[in-house]
C-alpha cells in the first residue's frame, strides 16, 4: 500500500518522451521514404501546428473537445446506471438482449443524414450521433461488469443488512468501476474517430472541418498540424482518464 510506485515528475515524463521519439522518428523516416509533399517531415508539421494553433485552430480544437465531452458525458450518465441495473436484472436482460445486440453493432454513422434532418446540422446532431455510438459501448460494458461481480460479495454484504441501493453503492458500482474506465478509454477512441466523420459534413467549425479544409487546399503542413492537434486531444483525454482512474480505484494500484 505504501512505498510503492510514486513516480517523480521526471519518471512520469519519460513515457511521453519515448512516444514523441518513436512517433517523430518513424514519421521522419517515412517522409524521407515517401518523399512527397503529401507527407511533410515532422518538424515543419509541429511548427505549423503551433502557428495554426495561434491562428484559429485553437477554436476548432475547443469546439471539437466540447463535442466529444458532451457526447461521452450523456452516454456515460445514461449508459452506466442503465447497464449496471440491467446486469442485476437477469430476466429483463434476457428480454432485451436481442434488441441490444441488433442495435449495438449497427453502423450508426450511416444514419447521419437522417439525424441531420431530425436534429439539424448543428452540434446537437453530432453530439447525438457520437453519444449514441459510445452509449452502447458503455452500456454493454457496464452490464457485463455488474454481472461479473461475484455473487458471494453481494450475499455477504446483504447479510450485513444492506438494502438494494447499499448493494449498488458498496458492491456493484466499485466492483464495476475498473471495467467502466476501460469502456471510457475505448469510448474516447471511438468518439474522436466518429467526431472526425461528423465534422466533415456541413460544418465550419471543429478539428475535422479544419483537416478537410486543409486537405482540399492541399495545405499538407496544415493538415498534419491538425492531425497533431487531434492526437493531442486524444492524449489529454486519456491522461485525464488515467489520473481519475488511479484516484478512483486505489485498490487496483497497490
Amino acid at each position: 500500500m505504501t512505498a510503492k510506485r510514486k513516480p517523480a515528475l521526471v519518471d512520469g515524463l519519460i513515457p511521453f518522451a519515448v512516444a514523441a521519439a518513436v512517433l517523430g522518428g518513424g514519421w521522419q523516416l517515412l517522409s524521407w521514404a515517401v518523399h512527397s509533399p503529401a507527407l511533410p517531415p515532422p518538424l515543419p508539421a509541429v511548427w505549423s501546428f503551433f502557428t495554426a494553433f495561434r491562428h484559429g485552430m485553437a477554436t476548432h480544437l475547443a469546439v471539437s473537445t466540447m463535442r466529444v465531452l458532451l457526447s461521452i458525458g450523456w452516454a456515460f450518465v445514461l449508459g452506466v446506471p442503465l447497464g449496471l441495473w440491467l446486469g442485476r436484472q437477469p430476466a429483463l436482460d434476457r428480454l432485451l438482449a436481442p434488441l441490444l445486440y441488433i442495435l449495438y453493432p449497427l453502423p450508426k454513422v450511416a444514419f447521419l443524414p437522417v439525424v441531420i434532418i431530425i436534429l439539424g446540422v448543428g452540434d446537437l446532431s453530432k453530439v447525438f450521433l457520437i453519444g449514441i455510438i459510445v452509449f452502447f459501448q458503455i452500456l454493454v460494458s457496464a452490464r457485463d461488469a455488474a454481472r461479473a461481480v461475484p455473487s458471494q460479495l453481494v450475499d455477504s454484504v446483504r447479510s450485513l443488512g444492506a438494502s438494494e441501493w447499499d448493494i449498488y453503492r458498496h458492491v456493484i458500482i466499485p466492483g464495476s468501476l475498473p471495467d467502466i474506465f476501460t469502456a471510457l478509454r475505448i469510448s474516447v477512441g471511438t468518439a474522436v474517430s466518429v467526431l472526425f466523420l461528423t465534422e466533415t459534413f456541413v460544418t465550419e467549425r471543429g478539428i475535422g472541418y479544419y483537416l478537410i479544409d486543409a486537405w482540399s487546399r492541399l495545405a499538407y503542413k496544415d493538415l498534419f498540424g491538425g492531425i497533431i492537434g487531434m492526437g493531442l486531444l486524444g492524449l489529454v483525454l486519456y491522461v485525464i482518464l488515467d489520473f481519475v482512474e488511479t484516484s478512483a480505484c486505489p485498490w487496483r494500484h497497490l
Binding site: 458471494q152 460479495l153 450475499d155 455477504s156 454484504v157 447479510s159 450485513l160 443488512g161 458498496h170 458492491v171 466499485p174 466492483g175 468501476l177 480505484c249 485498490w251
Partner: peptide, 16 residues
C-alpha cells in the same frame, strides 16, 4: 441484525 455470516472465501470487499 444479530446474525453474522462469514462466507467460504471471506467476502471482504477488495475495494475497501
Amino acid at each position: 441484525a444479530a446474525t453474522s455470516l462469514i462466507l467460504q472465501d471471506y467476502g471482504l470487499l477488495p475495494w475497501k
